[in-house]
Design a protein around this nucleic acid. Structure first.
Length: 271
DNA sequence: CCCGATTCCTGTAGGC
DNA sequence: TGCCTACAGGAATCGG
């Protein structure tokens, strides 16, 4: 499931293949995504030169000399770099042929992903305009977490997964960060102490950074642009480990649905 | 404004 | 072995 580390890994994996490349042709095989692919995407993209790749939250931004392609991988989306001649695979939605002779393919079985084309400032797009701070930036810290959570009754886990407060933290990394911070996912956000907010912000940064370093988490089908899995799964302490011994205290890991999502925690290490 | 629930979709795991 | 159901989840959107 692409969260921030997987999107960042995808961005880094595409840098060499896409930067300075001219887009020779665009083939759209299936417009059905979270939102249908806009009718003029093919026309807009063809002939554009890629200047750089950026990331905002879980959005990948392909900045060209004509405009920006905004890519969201949803939960099953991937971008792969393949030789031009390689046969198309099931759920390949878009192929972008570069003048290097290689092709970037957007594949998304569950169609929760999206593609948008914008001219001008991509951050002004409605999907990006209201996003909260980047977790790895200085704008996000314990003080921010403490301030923004005052008066909030939602569980801490739901709070840190809300992109209005901090972006990029999905279901896996939310559970992991809360474990390392020693905070119960059910604890009301408004009741987090300053010390807890400090620890939580620090652990969110550390967990996301560590995950990026090893290429993200592959649970089922996530792969980077070269087809390689991420190795953070081996470093998960609670996610997907219900009933298994806590890696720190050996107590069985608990699981419950919180905020409509499976949530994992250690009943001892997390108060 | 805040918050909980619903919705989109397909592949896979588990039960019988 | 094969069928059926439940479940997974990012985030927009809706209803209270």
């Amino acid at each position: 499931m692409p969260e921030l580390p997987e999107v960042e890994t995808t961005r880094r994996g595409l840098l060499d293949a896409m930067t300075t490349q001219r887009i020779e042709s665009v083939r759209i095989h299936d417009r059905r995504l979270r939102w249908p692919i806009e009718a003029d995407l093919e026309t807009q993209l063809t002939g554009a030169r890629v200047e750089r790749l950026e990331r905002r939250a879980k959005y990948l931004l392909v900045v060209t000399d004509r405009g920006t392609l905004i890519v969201h991988l949803g939960m099953s989306g991937s971008l792969r770099v393949v030789p031009d001649v390689l046969a198309r695979r099931l759920h390949d939605h878009v192929e972008i042929a570069l003048d290097s002779g290689r092709t970037v393919r957007f594949n998304d079985p569950r169609r929760f992903g999206s593609l948008h084309w914008v001219t001008g400032d991509p951050l002004a797009h409605p999907l990006l305009a209201t996003l909260g701070p980047e977790p790895l930036s200085e704008d996000f810290d314990g003080a921010h977490l403490y301030r923004s959570s005052r008066g909030r009754k939602v569980p801490a886990k739901v709070f840190i997964m809300n992109a209005a407060h901090v972006v990029g933290v999905g279901n896996i990394y939310a559970s992991e960060s809360l474990f390392h911070a020693g905070v119960r996912p059910t604890k009301s956000a408004g009741k987090l102490t300053q010390a807890e907010c400090q620890r939580l912000a620090a652990e969110i940064k550390r967990v996301l950074s560590d995950a990026i370093e090893v290429g993200g988490t592959t649970l089922r089908d996530y792969v980077d642009p070269d087809g390689n899995p991420g190795y953070f799964r081996q470093r998960l302490f609670v996610y997907d480990r219900a009933g298994k011994a806590c890696r720190r205290c050996h107590t069985p890991i608990s699981q419950r649905i919180i905020g409509q999502r499976s949530t994992y925690w250690c009943p001892i290490c997390q108060r």
